Structure formats: structure tokens, C-alpha cells
Computed example of a mutant assay.
Amino acid sequence: MSTSTVANHYTRILSLWPQDALRPNSPFTRTIEKRGLPFGVQPLPPSDPSVSKEKPSIAAAKPSSPPSPQSEAPQINALYTLLEDRYSKKYPLSPAVFRPTSNPEYYDRLMAEIERAPQKSWLQAKLDEWKLKIRWQ
């Protein structure tokens, strides 16, 4: 595997990686970019204009010796397995796992809360947090 092939793979993975709606300021793509920097991968511009214009210093910690392209093959393969969701297809979970007897609506409510989280203001998030700490009886 050559350096340009590694860069092409990392660039493709970065373009296909889904956006992190819950943590737009610290997405996993920054880690992938940092891993690909020695091979010439260019960092992606922030897709959300509300995210700060300043780019965090990705190249702050440079490795002592440049990694070999051959050693990146397992890393790239691991990223593709995550991207393609191979493990959940290979080892599917039964529907009973997502509906525990003790609290069958737990995962439905959790997913609804995760979908609502990016649209919440800071104040609304704090109010919801306080509501969970106070017992209403």
C-alpha cells in the first residue's frame, strides 16, 4: 500500500463518515484527520458555520517517525468496518434486547431525546437536567 493510497482511503472515509449531531465541536473525523496527516490528508472544512472558525491544532503532537503505509492497512480496514456497520449486520440483536422487561420504553425515549438534543438551547438542556434531579410526587 502506497502513501497516496492511504491518503485516498482516509479522504474517502472522511467524506463518508456521518456527522455527529450531539458533539459538533469534537467529531470523530478530527481523529481520522490527525491519523491521516502524515500521509497528506487535508482536514475537512467544518460543515456547520456556527462551529467556531478557529481550527484546533491537529498537528500539535507529531510522531517521532512517520508511520509506514503498510501499518495503516488494519486501521483503514477497521474504519471501513465501522462505517459499513459490518458487526451489527453479522451479529444482529434480537428485538427483546431493546425492550427490557423492567423498562420497555427506555430505548424509545432515549432515541427521542437524542434526536431532540441538537435543537435544544443551553437553558432548555439545563432545565431538563434539573427536572431529572428533582422528584415530583
Rank of each mutant, 00 (worst) to 15 (best):
P45T: 00
E33Y: 09
V6N: 10
K55Q: 12
S2Q: 07
P66H: 08
Y10D: 12
E72S: 03
E105A: 11
R116Y: 03
E72H: 01
M1P: 07
A73P: 02
S52G: 14
E105Y: 07
L37V: 02
D48E: 12
G36D: 09
A117L: 11
S2K: 03
P66E: 08
I76C: 05
W130E: 11
L110D: 08
I32Y: 00
K89C: 03
A73W: 04
F28S: 13
I134Y: 06
K53G: 15
A117W: 07
L93D: 01
S26G: 12
Y80C: 06
Q137I: 14
V41R: 00
M111H: 03
L16P: 04
L93H: 11
P38Y: 06
P38D: 08
E72I: 09
I76A: 05
A60Y: 13
L14Y: 13
I13K: 13
R23I: 14
P63E: 12
K131A: 05
A73Q: 14
L83A: 04
S102H: 08
K126L: 14
P104Y: 13
Q137F: 14
R109E: 02
Y107M: 11
S102V: 06
Y107N: 09
T5M: 09
A78E: 04
W17Q: 03
A61H: 11
K126G: 03
L83C: 05
S102L: 07
L16V: 14
L14Q: 04
E72V: 10
M1K: 05
P49D: 13
S121W: 04
T29G: 02
T3C: 02
Y10L: 15
L93G: 01
E54K: 13
L22G: 10
T3H: 07
L16T: 15
P118T: 04
L14V: 06
L132H: 10
L93R: 13
R30T: 04
T29K: 12
E115F: 02
K34Y: 00
A96E: 13
Q70G: 01
R30K: 12
P104G: 12
P95I: 00
P49E: 14
K90C: 06
L37Q: 08
E129F: 09
P27G: 06
P66F: 10
Q119C: 03
L16E: 15
A125S: 15
T3N: 09
T81Q: 11
S121I: 02
T31N: 01
I13T: 15
K120P: 00
I114N: 06
P69E: 12
R116G: 04
Y107T: 10
L44I: 05
S88N: 08
P45W: 05
F39W: 00
Q124F: 02
S94R: 14
V41E: 09
D85H: 10
S4F: 12
